[in-house]
């Protein structure tokens, strides 16, 4: 159905090698590269566009880079700061200052875990109220020291637990949204896997919101929607179609500014290439925003979100 992704990847690698050689040696290799490029194009078209559900699968693919995988490749000096100073520390939403490709920033990271043990410890990236309260604390620091905020969004949603409710999950998310809207420093958010509901939006209120090609962002997970609509979570593929939750959908709806390309077959097949694209896109938006005044940044972000919605008026 999807053609042969391996053949396509191999071909792309050859094109990249030839391009690198041409670049290095100054030779003109267009005669060799052009037919290969056409073949790549042909194979891409033959495989057809991915269905929305296929993209959801890619967003959850084993080995897909997590937030820390991007930080490892793109940042130096990351200093994780722990705790919300009230109750505890949440390993599902972490952060601290770092240099993003050289630029000092404050990182907010929804971290899913890399193996079974850390996935469980980090509750698969589903934060408790402590996570959002720590995020607010880190935003306060960012504001105080004039650090732009970079948030990497990757969660199926806030953790739906008994204790999370006791400690005010809704309150913590609402406060995080409010704080992020009030920041007078640049905020760039990138959805790097799953953008599930309010738990994602809590750290998704950016001047610019970017999304990777195979990430999704929606008011509810496909499984959640399927259990409400059909009382059957296995109907998630249908729900994914209805929810229009893919990166191209969100670009159409004006929810995101840019779709960050992924390596053919998904970010997990070439994390280096995926990281380079994320690094470049976030870095470029940061540079643009850093030219704006604190007032412009706050007002611009507020205006961006005030304008979102679809309705008519009689």
């Amino acid at each position: 159905m999807t053609g042969s992704p391996e053949a396509l990847r191999e071909l792309e690698a050859r094109v990249r090698d030839l391009e690198a050689t041409a670049e290095r040696t100054g030779q003109n290799l267009d005669a060799s590269i052009s037919p290969l490029r056409q073949e790549v194009q042909r194979l891409r078209e033959a495989s057809g566009p991915l269905s929305r559900w296929e993209r959801v699968q890619l967003a959850r693919a084993p080995g897909r880079p997590t937030a820390l995988d991007y930080v490892d490749r793109l940042c130096t000096g990351f200093t994780e700061l722990h705790g919300d100073r009230r109750f505890g520390d949440d390993p599902a939403l972490i952060g601290g200052p770092a240099r993003w490709m050289g630029v000092p920033v404050m990182l907010l990271l929804q971290q899913k875990g890399r193996d079974t043990k850390t996935k469980i410890k980090r509750r698969f990236g589903s934060a408790n109220p402590e996570g959002y309260r720590k995020a607010v604390r880190l935003m306060d620091l960012a504001e105080k020291f004039g650090l732009p905020v970079v948030a990497l969004v990757d969660t199926q949603g806030a953790y739906p637990g008994l204790e999370a409710e006791e400690r005010g999950q809704g309150w913590a998310i609402a406060e995080s949204i409010r704080r992020m809207l009030s920041l007078r420093v640049p905020v760039v958010c990138a959805v790097i896997g799953e953008g599930g509901s309010g738990g994602a939006l809590a750290v998704g209120v950016g001047n610019r919101v970017l999304i990777q090609e195979n990430a999704w962002y929606s008011v509810i997970s496909p499984e959640g929607a399927a259990s409400i609509i059909w009382k059957d979570a296995s109907k998630a593929p249908l729900a994914a179609e209805a929810l229009k939750l893919t990166a191209p959908d969100l670009l159409d709806l004006g929810i995101v500014e840019e779709v960050i390309p992924e390596p053919t077959g998904g970010a997990h097949l070439n994390p280096e290439e995926a990281a380079a694209a994320v690094g470049e896109a976030v870095g470029r938006h940061l540079a643009e925003l850093m030219a704006q005044s604190p007032q412009e940044l706050k007002k611009g972000r507020a205006a961006r979100f005030r304008a979102l919605g679809a309705f008519t008026e009689t």
Binding site: I177, I220, D249, L308
Partner: peptide, 20 residues
């Protein structure tokens, strides 16, 4: 809660109302 049938547009109302 947020209305499922407007998906991400509904979600964004959480931020929009906060702005106002």
């Amino acid at each position: 809660g947020a209305r499922m049938q407007e998906s991400a547009l509904s979600l964004m109302q959480m931020a929009k109302t906060t702005v106002a």
